[in-house]
Design a protein around this nucleic acid. Structure first.
Lengths: 223, 223
DNA sequence: TCGCCGTTATCTGTGATATTTGATCGTAGG
DNA sequence: CCTACGATCAAATATCACAGATAACGGCGA
């Protein structure tokens, strides 16, 4: 089994922290589709006992980021082209809806904040896309929808999508990805209040996210 | 604390069973918004130890059916009008999408099966709406979408909606609810392949679901 | 006598650990 | 080469120990 890099966590509010540590590891693409994860190894790496890890893992299973195999071992869902298409459809539909609600309420200040996120220094070097920035940008927007129901659903989709990030990061064309173009279009459309343009730009951005791995599936790249 | 009726469960595959037992209790409207639930009491009722209950409960929290209060006690989310509106919007959007995909693939056989569900004997007596039938009908349809991504999201919405079922069941107008009309319209539209009509009927059915409790909120009715 | 406040006892979830169960993998024997 | 047995490992449950919160109870003051 590969050993994803997960930093040890501090000992207060263990359960929450374990969950977010694992969640972060997912959104950073530390886990590759098909990876087997073990509660013991995770708890050793995190410096805690199995109990908090198990609860966090159970939550991740509920959210679809991990699956229970029939033999009870935990696995990152293997690459599945159909499922990925499904995921893309779901993202397009849900995030379109959330964007709609966000545009009803967003203020000029918040648009400025979103632009500030784009202006920040890239954290991952120039060769890999800045996943954290991408995440921050989208959710700064989505949070403006004010929907406590839809937002967790979108987060669940991103978490499932997270396993595919590993494939993207290690893909040979990773450096070519240009997320800035669509992001700037979204900002511009928000300023204009142009709903159709914002929807188009967001849809294009989501399509882009899947484009790199759409053709060649299942190239498992562990650390 | 009220004592929701939860049957003891058999001892194999405990974790799954505990989860589904609690889930069922939710969809039967056994829990009222604002109820406090205790791990120990639940595990006593189910005849197991706390551990499996804890994991099941943790999953329900992740799905929004229960919430953690700041003092760490578990609570059924209290009635919240805004949240309910939010939930309705989400259900309308997501179930519309799922219906769309289901209509691409559904066969005449499956439509017959759905009709058979409607023809079955009502289980709850004539005064209360048959919640199980309603659930079975909708998900027989949604399963035809074949979407492993969207279906769990819809289930999560129904679970959050479940807490409000308690309010509906004990509502004075509960007997007046006529779910058959919209269901038959859906069946008819499916047979005709009339997408617009199916969408209209489904939307009307969802609206109906919320109508009873839309006006008077928070009438807490425990057992 | 009534009301307020502090103390205490109980009940809560949380984290850790031990025990049991089940599955997998390697090896030895046919 | 295939099969079957056993050792090993991981997950599932139960039990234990701890810390925090809640609520009830009793004493004190008005």
């Amino acid at each position: 089994m590969p050993a994803p890099r997960i930093a040890k966590i501090d000992q207060s509010k263990l359960r929450e922290n374990v969950y977010y540590a694992l969640r972060d590891a997912f959104t950073r693409g530390e886990f590759a589709p098909g990876d087997i994860v073990s509660l013991r190894i995770l708890s050793d790496q995190l410096g805690t006992s199995m109990t908090p890890v198990r609860e966090a893992v159970r939550r991740l299973v509920a959210e679809g980021a991990l699956i229970d195999t029939p033999s009870r071992t935990l696995m990152v869902p293997p690459f599945d082209s159909n499922r990925m298409q499904d995921l893309k459809k779901a993202r397009l539909a849900l995030e379109s809806l959330v964007l709609e609600q966000a545009m009803d309420r967003i203020s000029a200040d918040k648009i400025d904040e979103m632009e500030a996120i784009l202006a920040a220094e890239p954290r991952g070097g120039d060769t890999t896309p800045d996943l954290q920035q991408n995440y921050d940008f989208h959710f700064a927007l989505y949070r403006q929808s004010g929907s406590e129901v839809l937002l967790p659903l979108v987060e669940a989709l991103w978490l499932q999508y997270g396993a595919y990030l590993n494939l993207i990061i290690h893909h040979q064309d990773a450096g070519k990805i240009d997320q800035h173009k669509h992001h700037n279009e979204i900002i511009h459309a928000l300023r204009q209040g142009d709903r159709a343009a914002a929807q188009r730009a967001l849809a294009a951005d989501i399509e882009r996210s899947f484009q790199v791995i759409a053709s060649d599936g299942g190239q498992r790249v562990s650390r």
